[in-house]
């Protein structure tokens, strides 16, 4: 990366491809991006509702399939609607997002894990009632 003149130019090549006011994108292209995101999100939503009510899939795997579809749809929303990209001026947004995902995973997965173990170790409710008498 030598310091070419274009590299030093603000708003030259240093603009995220998804940034809404990037000069090289026409209105038609911007609308096309949102339409593409809408199509992907709609397909994934339909797939989610179909998977939830179907008998075609082995029943215990349905929650996993739903989680995968939801994560895919969240990715589509981030890329096409929120314009989170790999461009240099988006690095901070990506890092903040990564940290947010870390905290969310810790909170949700940690709660489920801990509460599941507590439930397994707990005295069954009828025995507990006996002990309290």
């Amino acid at each position: 990366m030598s310091g070419r003149r274009e590299d030093l130019e603000p708003n030259g090549s240093d603009v995220a491809p998804g940034v809404i006011d990037a000069p090289e994108e026409t209105v038609r292209e911007k609308i096309g991006g949102y339409l593409l995101g809408l199509v992907f999100a709609t397909l994934l939503t339909i797939a989610s509702f179909y998977v939830a009510g179907t008998n075609l899939i082995w029943a215990p795997s349905i929650p996993i399939a739903l989680a995968v579809l939801a994560i895919a749809q969240i990715g589509i929303h981030l890329a096409f609607f929120l314009h989170i990209t790999t461009a240099p001026d988006n690095t901070n947004n990506i890092l903040a997002l990564a940290f947010g995902i870390l905290i969310v995973v810790l909170v949700v997965a940690g709660s489920l894990w801990i509460m599941d173990h507590l439930n397994q170790n707990m005295v069954p409710m009828d025995q507990m009632m006996q002990m309290q008498r």
């Binding site: 939503t45 939830a52 349905i62 929650p63 739903l66 939801a70 969240i74 929303h77 609607f81 929120l82």
Partner: peptide
């Protein structure tokens, strides 16, 4: 507004679709 939609994706999946089963 887009973030609210992202939260709704997680919400309908966890609360309604997984919870509805």
């Amino acid at each position: 507004w887009h973030t609210l939609d992202i939260i709704w994706v997680a919400l309908f999946t966890i609360v309604y679709l997984i919870g509805g089963g």
